[in-house]
């Protein structure tokens, strides 16, 4: 009888010590692969350059531009108000604080939309909501906003409206850029998510 109790005591201790070994690292929350696939095949994550331009011009505070190119490229040219998080340091704990803030839209920007898409998949996999990709990347930005092409004759009215907007945006960005270059560099105010505990209450 006593020997059985000794075995049981040891078993219980081993089980408890086991929890120390397995639960030491706080796990990152992940979503199911099926769910991820479902979101990947939907184009809803894409935001056009026009929409981004509009949001920057209106000073939309919910917009959070994240540039995933290397730091060198970011130095050469970057969108106003954007933050540089190179793709290879995306899942640092310090970078993750930018994502998943309720009410903000994180938009990934790269030269094309491939690197931005990769960043988007990573954040989705980690279960963050509210992340998007700028369609076409900075190449598309150059084509549409910085050097907009006048629509050919016979194009529908909307094409002319878009063109008019892009012309205006072009002035805004090229002009605004010159001002920034002259003036002192303004530190970008960035919202960070507060660290939340793993277990929140309620059911």
């Amino acid at each position: 009888m006593d020997r059985n109790y000794i075995y049981l005591t040891i078993l219980m201790l081993v089980l408890a010590i086991g929890t120390l070994l397995v639960n030491n690292e706080p796990k990152l929350k992940q979503i199911e692969p099926q769910q991820l696939l479902l979101e990947m095949v939907q184009p809803t994550r894409y935001v056009t350059t026009d929409q981004i331009a509009k949001m920057i011009i209106h000073g939309d505070p919910s917009l959070e531009l994240v540039d995933v190119r290397s730091a060198d490229e970011f130095e050469q040219f970057a969108l106003p108000r954007s933050v540089n998080i190179p793709l290879d340091s995306l899942i640092n704990s310090s970078s993750l604080g930018y994502f998943g803030i309720p009410g903000t839209k994180v938009v990934f920007v790269s030269n094309d939309d491939i690197a931005a898409d990769q960043a988007w998949v990573l954040t989705k996999r980690l279960g963050f909501k509210g992340t998007y990709v700028m369609r076409g990347g900075l190449n598309c930005w150059m084509e549409t906003i910085i050097n907009p092409q006048e629509p050919s004759e016979g194009s529908p009215n909307t094409a002319y409206e878009t063109y008019a907007f892009r012309k205006g945006a072009q002035q805004y960005f090229t002009g605004a850029k010159a001002e920034v270059a002259e003036g002192s560099k303004v530190k970008v105010e960035v919202q960070r998510r507060k660290k939340t505990s793993a277990v929140a209450g309620g059911c």
Binding site: M12, L13, V22, N24
Partner: peptide, 12 residues
């Protein structure tokens, strides 16, 4: 204190 240490403490 992490949950696993709490459980460990109670167990011991």
């Amino acid at each position: 204190i992490p949950a696993s240490w709490v459980a460990m403490g109670f167990t011991v």
